[in-house]
Write a protein that binds this DNA or RNA. Structure first.
Lengths: 198, 198, 198, 198
DNA sequence: CATGAATGAGTCTTCATTCAT
DNA sequence: AATGAATGAAGACTCATTCAT
C-alpha cells in the first residue's frame, strides 16, 4: 500500500504504468487459472515485464495477488431511480453481469479454496466487492423501510443475503444465468417483509 | 459398478482398504489444500500407500480426484416430521453442519476455481451433493403446495435457491455460521409464497 | 538356454507358445523402440501375457532381450548358382532386404548403443546374424580363389568387409537403399583382387 | 550465430563456460550411456550446474542433445601431401582414431537407435561428421581422377563408401581396430578403379 | 503355472525466488 | 530501476521388479 508513491530517493522512479499492467495481468490470470495454476512468468509475459520487476515491487506471489485483489474496485453502481423494486433489481443484475464479465465465480472459488492458505484473499474480496455491493442494497432497503414498504423490525442484513443468495445457489445448481432470478428474489423479499396490513 | 463381478479374479485381489484410504485421504486434502496445492505424495503418505499404488488405480491426478468426489455421498437426510417449517429448517441446518464438518466451502471453492480446467469436479459436486439436497427441499415444498400452504403457481426451484442461497451469501459476507439463518430463510420463503388470502 | 525344456518337475508345464510370443514381441519392440524406450509392459501386452509371466522365465529385462536376440536366426541363404559375381550379389541383396524388413539398422544401433551396458546384445547379434552372413560370402570367395578368379594371397576376411561395408557407409551417408550398391561392391572387389595377368 | 549480437544485453549475461560445460557433458553421456539411459541430472552434475540452468537454455532433453550433437565439429583434417594413396590412408586413419577417441560407435548406435524417435540426431551426425569426412575423401579422389590415376567414369560417391565401409563392417564383425584396414581399403579401391591400360 | 497388486527408485519438467549485471 | 541468469524444491508420472493369491 502506497509502495509506488513518492519515493523521495534518487534514481529512476518506478514506472506506474508497469505497476498497473502487472496488477491487471495478475488479476486476469488469478480469475482464469486460479492461484496455484497461474505463474509469475505468465504475469510477467502478459504485463511485458520481467519476473524480477514483479519481485521488486511485491516480495512474494501471495503479496502480489493480494495487491491485485486490493486494486479491484466495484464499478460504478447503477443510478437509483427511487423505486425500491426497480433499484434492487438493477443492482442485482449489475452484480450478475459483473460476475460474468470478470469470471467472478472462478475468482470467488480461488479465494475460497485458498482461504486456509492465504486468508487475505477472501478478506479482500469481501472488503472490495462483496461488502460495497451489500451496502448499496442495504441503502435501498433502508429507504424502503423509512417509507413503510418494509416492516420496521426486518433484519436488513438477512434481507440482503436473501437478495444475493439465489445467485450463488443457482450457480451451484447449474442453473446460473437465468433471466428472472433477480426479479424473483426481489419479489420474494419485498413480499416476505411487507408491512403487515399495508 | 460391476467391479466385483469380474470374471474369475486371477492374481492377488486389490485391497479394498487401500481403495478407501486413498479416496478418503484425497478428498480430505482436496478440501484442505485445494486441487493444485495438494500432491499425490501427500495422498500416498496420508493413506499409507505408495504413490504407484495410486497410479495403479487411477491414471492421473484428475482421475483420482474425480473418483474421490464421486465417492462422496450425501449423508442420510434428517427424517421428516410432516411440519413444513420444521422439516425445511432441519434440512438446511443439516446442510450447514455438513458443509462445516467437511470444509465444504473450501471444497466448493476448489471445484469452482478448477471449473475451467477440470469441469468434472464441479459437475460431480453438483450431482452428488447439491442436487440431492435440493431434491429433499423440493419434496417438502411440493407437499406444502399440495396442502395449500404455498401458492399453486410458485416456482419451486427458485424457492429452493431462496432457501439455500442465504447460506452462501452469508459466507461470502463473512457472516457465516449465524444461528438463525435457516429459520429466517424458511420464514421468508413461506411468507413470500403463502397462498394469498389464506 | 534350455530353460524351457524338459522340466521334469510336477505342475503345469510352461507354455511354449507363450515363450515364443514373448520373444517375438520383445524383438519387435527392441527394433522399433530401442532397449531403454521399450517396456516390459509393452512386451506383455503385445504377447498377451502378464508381466509376471515374463519375469518367471527371464529374471531381468537384459536377460529377456538377450534371449530374444539369441532366438534370431538368419533366414535361409539364397541358393548358390556357381557364378561368383551372381552369388555374391545375391547374398548382399538378400542381406539388404533382410535388414530393411526387420528394421535392422535400428536394431544394430540399439546393440551398439548398449554395448557398454549390455555387451551380450552386440555379441549375440554378431554370432547370429553377422558372422553367418560373412561365412556365406567367404565360402563363395574361397571357391573363386580355388578357381583362380582371385589372387592366392588375398585377405578374404578383408574382402568380405569390403563387400558388406558400403552398405553401412551408404546408410550413414543417408544414401542407403541404392539399387546398384551390391553390384558395385562386388565389381570393385572382384576387380581389385583379380589374379594379375589373368 | 548472431547469439552474441543481441541488441543491448540487459541483465546478467549467460555464462559461456556453463554453456560449454553442459554441451560437453551431454555429448559425453550421450556417447557412453545412450539417449534414454542418460539423465539430465547426470548432465547437471557432470557440468557442475543445476538442472534448471539446463532447462533455461534448452527446453527439452531432445533439444539439449540435438544442440550437443550440432556443436560437434570434425577436428581439423590431416594435411594433404599430394600423394593419393597416402592422403586417403591418412584421412581414414584419422577417422578411425576420432571414432575411437569419442566412443563414436556408441554414439552412432544411439543415433541409429533413436532414428524413429528423434531423427534429428542422426541427421546432425551426418551433417556434422559423416558428410564432411566424405567430402575430404572425395576431393582427393577427384584430384586423382584429374591426374588419370582413376577411371574417368568412376562413381566417386560409391568409391567413398568403399573406402569407409570396411571400418563399419569390421566393427560389426568384431574385428575392429585392425592396423591395416585403411591401407587395404585404399589399395582395393585404387586398384579397382585404376584406369585400364595404365 | 500364471496373474495382478504393490513398490521404490528415477525421469523430465515447472516454479517461486535470489543473484549478478 | 530493470533485466536475465541461476537455483533448490517439488510435482506428476513410468518402470523393472518383488509379493501374495
Amino acid at each position: 500500500m502506497g509502495e509506488t508513491s513518492m519515493s523521495k530517493g534518487a534514481g529512476r522512479p518506478r514506472s506506474a504504468e508497469k505497476d498497473a499492467a502487472i496488477l491487471r495481468a495478475a488479476l486476469e490470470l488469478l480469475a482464469t487459472h486460479g492461484y496455484t495454476r497461474m505463474s509469475l512468468s505468465q504475469v510477467a509475459a502478459s504485463a511485458q515485464v520481467s519476473k524480477s520487476t514483479i519481485h521488486l515491487r511485491w516480495k512474494t506471489k501471495a503479496d502480489l495477488l493480494t495487491a491485485a485483489l486490493a486494486a479491484v474496485r466495484m464499478a460504478d453502481a447503477p443510478p437509483a431511480v427511487g423505486d425500491t423494486r426497480q433499484d434492487l433489481v438493477a443492482i442485482l443484475e449489475d452484480f450478475a453481469a459483473t460476475v460474468q464479465r470478470v469470471r467472478g465465480m472462478a475468482l470467488i472459488g480461488t479465494c475460497l479454496a485458498e482461504e486456509a492458505h492465504t486468508p487475505d484473499l477472501l478478506a479482500l474480496l469481501r472488503e472490495r466487492t462483496v461488502l460495497p455491493r451489500r451496502a448499496l442494497l442495504r441503502e435501498v432497503l433502508e429507504r424502503a423501510r423509512e417509507r413503510g414498504e418494509i416492516r420496521r423490525d426486518a433484519d436488513l442484513e438477512a434481507a440482503v443475503s436473501a437478495l444475493l443468495g439465489p445467485f450463488y445457489a443457482d450457480y451451484m445448481a447449474g442453473r446460473g444465468g437465468r433471466r428472472t432470478w433477480a426479479e424473483q428474489a426481489v419479489d420474494l423479499v419485498l413480499t416476505g417483509l411487507r408491512t403487515p396490513g399495508a
